[in-house]
Design a protein around this nucleic acid. Structure first.
Lengths: 345, 345
DNA sequence: GCCCCCGTGTTGAACGATCCAATAGTAGAG
DNA sequence: CTCTACTATTGGATCGTTCAACACGGGGGC
């Protein structure tokens, strides 16, 4: 597979290959970039030499000349509200996978946590990246403004919350639909009084998900009064909120804005000797590692991150080739992973 | 902060800056790379223009001329034995953080899961990276052999298991010491019959950690016979193994090779109505997100990944400047994060 | 027969930085 | 005042690739 012929010494260049194949540099370049311009036998001869020498074009030289680095920047930072830490990691994995096919690479950078713009500018001015993937659009979008202003291509994972009519390309997962799925699932399992445990009102993602819960309840003709609670994303806060809701004994279902919150509910159930699934149904959000290992298994809404990554790269490709994407706003459907926290048997 | 003066148009180059400052290109270059060569006032003038124009050297041009890309490659793949998925993610975060200070950047790539070498060669031949960080040395080290052969710099996170006398630079965390800490902690909490739930014998990391457990038991004069069990890294396998060990009622402590396994033990305790901490002590490994949210909180061995990343980058720096590192083999100490799964109150 | 075009290849220049060798400037010593 | 020694600055060449323009022979179309 990997042609590891040359084991040492300087790397071969276009000129090396050209000389060896008895053609000009440009012809070798064409063999790589515009093979259809060459006569069949010439092409074959050049390709043979390329293979023999294990030649790969120098990225720096190519980038310098074409002004395209084939690198995509992603600011990678510690935990964030909403888009939970682990989620981002899974997304990055998918992204790397998706870029592998296109010859692009992901380059990670970090920045001052207090300055959302930190880092972008430098990479751009150094022409180190061709484009960016932006992952946190819920906290306003100064990055988008910056990149728009300087004309740098980008795609976001996350819709333009502030300005739904914004024209930039984005991919997102329908969180409201996810919460709706969760709630419908609980209703189908026979629950009626289903609580929502979500984030503070300032969280756009949180309010969006919550709307899916109310929609499902409304559709089933269930009164939501007193059942929607807003807390911080924290096991203990969730545990205490759950205790309060469970007090009068009527609430038997919990749809949650995150797995962390759902796990907090499970803690409360354990402390009250209630059985998850049989007595009380609980659904989390994001299908995190925690959901997968927590006892007795947490039903959770899963975002199709692999597909998100593929769509992001597809959009990026279109944008980079200066075309206008047909559908620059792509909303994907989440799915429900059912585990024992909602099984009544 | 971010000098976003120029909002559009072509990027300024060395020549632009030189002309504007009334000096030559080389002088501008020196202002950036060898400021001590310039007279004070010249330096100040040049720096002012650089600031004014928001100039940043073109990375491609610089890389082409100096043959140094200032990029570090990291093969980033889905879940792996031992070094659990989440662990790698945390490490990458720390690594990005650590590189930020040195002007280097992490570039991620993926490869054919069946070919550990896939991807390295191409990046090298394209001179896209200066060096690599390698994270999985437990499965033999074909990457190390390859990179050694072609003379490419690298540092590994993980010691050379196959050949302890290997000369390449590495950083690792003392897993045996971690398991020893865990076991000592359980002993201090009053437990005597402390079981080990670890991975199969083929896992070097697993056997290393296990040795820490036996060392601690031996030091306390406790007989380890029948207490060491090897299973796959899986909640359910751990749950069943725990049930078996708990059968005769004498085992009251569990030291585990991973949080996943420890969580399996917690499941078994729940099913037997045993209280984690009060009745049975459980310690996991890696301080994963799961350990932090699982009820009632899982005591776990934490690897100092932030420090690992710093040491890795430090070694890489030394190697890249063609120096021989003073201490190319760096073993770091893990610590214990105590939570309720080992509290008797 | 003339001209243009098409298919193949070639050559020189350019991308933007740094390295190198050579030069202009600046003191200090004799 | 000149010479030396050193410093600051300069112009040109270079890294490896692609772009732009053009050379060359062979078909048509007229």
């Amino acid at each position: 597979m990997s042609p590891s012929r040359r084991l040492t010494g300087p790397h071969p260049t276009l000129a090396t290959v050209a000389e060896r194949a008895g053609v000009s540099r440009q012809t070798v370049s064409n063999a790589l970039n515009n093979p259809e311009l060459l006569r069949e036998d010439t092409l074959a001869r050049v390709q043979a030499v390329i293979e023999e020498l294990g030649y790969t074009p120098n990225r720096a030289a190519r980038a310098l000349r074409t002004r395209a680095s084939h690198m995509i920047g992603l600011r990678f930072e510690p935990a964030q509200e909403g888009t939970s830490n682990a989620l981002i990691d899974r997304f990055v994995h998918s992204l790397v996978e998706a870029t592998a096919r296109t010859g692009h690479h992901i380059i990670l950078f970090s920045g001052d946590p207090d300055d959302l713009l930190d880092g972008y500018d430098e990479l751009l001015r150094a022409t180190a990246v061709d484009a960016f993937v932006i992952t946190d659009t819920y906290a306003g979008t100064p990055q988008v403004d910056l990149l728009d202003r300087v004309g740098a291509p980008f795609v976001t994972f996350g819709r333009p919350w502030d300005d739904p009519s914004a024209k930039y390309p984005w991919v997102d997962v329908d969180g409201a639909r996810g919460a709706e799925l969760a709630t419908e699932h609980l209703i189908a399992a026979g629950h009626q009084r289903i609580a929502w445990l979500g984030w503070e009102k300032t969280s756009r993602i949180g309010e969006d998900r919550r709307s899916g819960w109310s929609r499902a309840l409304a559709a089933a003709g269930i009164d939501a009064a007193g059942l929607g609670v807003r807390i911080t994303d924290n096991v203990d806060a969730a545990r205490m909120a759950a205790h309060e809701l469970l007090e009068d004994g009527t609430v038997t279902g919990f749809a949650c804005a995150s797995d962390t919150i759902a796990i907090g509910v499970l803690h409360a159930l354990a402390e009250r000797n209630l059985r998850p699934g049989a007595d009380v149904g609980v659904v989390g959000f994001d299908d995190s590692l925690g959901a997968q290992v927590t006892w007795p298994g947490l039903t959770s809404v899963r975002q199709p991150l692999e597909q998100v990554a593929i769509e992001v790269i597809d959009l990026l490709h279109t944008v980079l080739s200066l075309k206008t994407p047909e559908n620059p706003a792509r909303m994907l459907e989440p799915s429900l992973v059912v585990r024992r926290s909602t099984r009544r048997d």
